[in-house]
Design a protein around this nucleic acid. Structure first.
Lengths: 235, 235
DNA sequence: AGAGCGTAGTACTGTATAATACCACTATGT
DNA sequence: ACATAGTGGTATTATACAGTACTACGCTCT
């Protein structure tokens, strides 16, 4: 794996580009002075001193006690803990300070793009309290395997209708003949995601509208019954 | 709790100021058109449309299917799930792409400021694998109660030396006579944090240096023995 | 003279925000 | 029929700020 990905990942965690480069240098060398860090990364000393001070302020590095000021990185594991804790605090604060939320509407929400559709599926898995039904292709299921595994581990009953024998511990998998069909995901009998999804694009609708939920539920139930009837004929 | 804190918390989760204001308006109203959202928040329509598009791209809002474009907020619970997942992915990526880390050094790291000291304590709690010893004042212990509770819940043995009868399920608490003393925290017999901490400031050193670890360990052990001896005399 | 240590300052770029202008359509009042 | 207000939406410019690039200066030590 190349260096840029490490820098990208750190930037996603709140580092600026130069902070990330300096942090990486500190990881690799154990501890460095500002002058050494600037030389090692090619960042001008002026910016290096500023970015190191910022790393210390953010808690991602510490000053090493000694004569000349040297710096050491916080371990990456601890950086992970730190950003997780801070984010939990922010989420907690947001929930505590949330305004009165208007309830009741069940609009049809547009979910466009493969990434957005998969992300919405993950949210359905993570938010599920009782049951999950999914009619998806195996390649799409693979992309949310971890989230489904976590759901089954939480005791969520997961039923899958798939185009081939896909396997997940704790999940009930039906294999249908049709090669491909629309996405249909139902969570807890209340939330539904449906539409088109392939490797390059996604165009789905998410809703808690009871009519749409019932429509998709009937569609799925019907298709699962066909699969079960066919399996019975074979036995 | 006033509105600014909600906006601050959202900004910490990746919203810009205007995105946060618009998101809040969408939460309060269920769904809004761009024009309505601009009016509701006082943001110019040009910026409002741009920020709403950005909210959709970030996954924090969706377009409502219908004639005129209307928008609805992702629930705050789901926003929490989303940012957690993304952060987990970034942490995972960073760990996977991490450079070779230089091992072995055990420098004395400076930890300045009350917030930074408490944060380092929390990291020690979260990272503990076996034991935690803490000599702290009760008011400081209160600030890390949640992290200590999580540690005991994970089976970490927590021993506290405190200036009054502080209580935490699963922790062993000794009460000393001295009103206040230096901070001394030892994790797993390997990591130590020590120094001064009061309500307005903190000035500590963190290290994995075996000499310092042993020094603080002896100091704590000695003081706990005195407390235990005194308790025995009283009985 | 060169390396190491550190700070101050300027300039450029990108982003967020503030603001204005323009265009089109619909509804309403006169 | 016309003017006005409201709604929907985009384009553009300007400003402030943070991040980054860069230069200059001063000091100490070898």
């Amino acid at each position: 794996m190349s260096s840029p990905d490490f820098i990208d990942a750190l930037q996603a965690l709140g580092f600026t580009g130069q902070e990330a480069a300096l942090y990486r240098a500190l990881l690799e060398h154990g501890e460095l002075s500002g002058y050494e860090a600037a030389k090692e990364t090619g960042i001008s000393r002026s910016n290096a001193y500023h970015a190191l001070a910022s790393l210390v302020e953010k808690g991602f590095a510490s000053r090493v006690e000694g004569e000349a000021t040297r710096y050491a990185a916080l371990s990456l594991e601890d950086v992970g803990r730190l950003v997780r804790s801070r984010q939990e605090m922010s989420i907690k604060n947001a929930l505590a300070a949330a305004p009165q939320v208007k309830q009741g509407g069940t609009p049809f929400l547009s979910v466009s793009g493969r990434a957005a559709v998969l992300e919405r599926m993950r949210l359905l898995c993570q938010g599920a309290e009782d049951r999950l039904y999914l009619a998806l292709d195996a390649t799409d299921l693979e992309d949310i395997r971890d989230d489904l595994a976590e759901a089954t581990a939480r005791g969520i009953r997961v039923t899958v209708l798939c185009n081939r024998a896909w396997e997940l511990d704790g999940a009930l998998v039906h294999v249908r003949r049709k090669a491909r069909g629309p996405v249909r995901v139902i969570a807890d009998g209340r939330k539904v995601l449906t539409g088109e999804l392939d490797q390059a694009r996604g165009e789905c609708v998410f809703s808690e509208n009871p009519h749409l939920v019932n429509l998709i539920k009937d569609s799925l139930t019907h298709e699962i019954q066909i699969v079960q009837a066919r399996a019975t004929e074979r036995n």
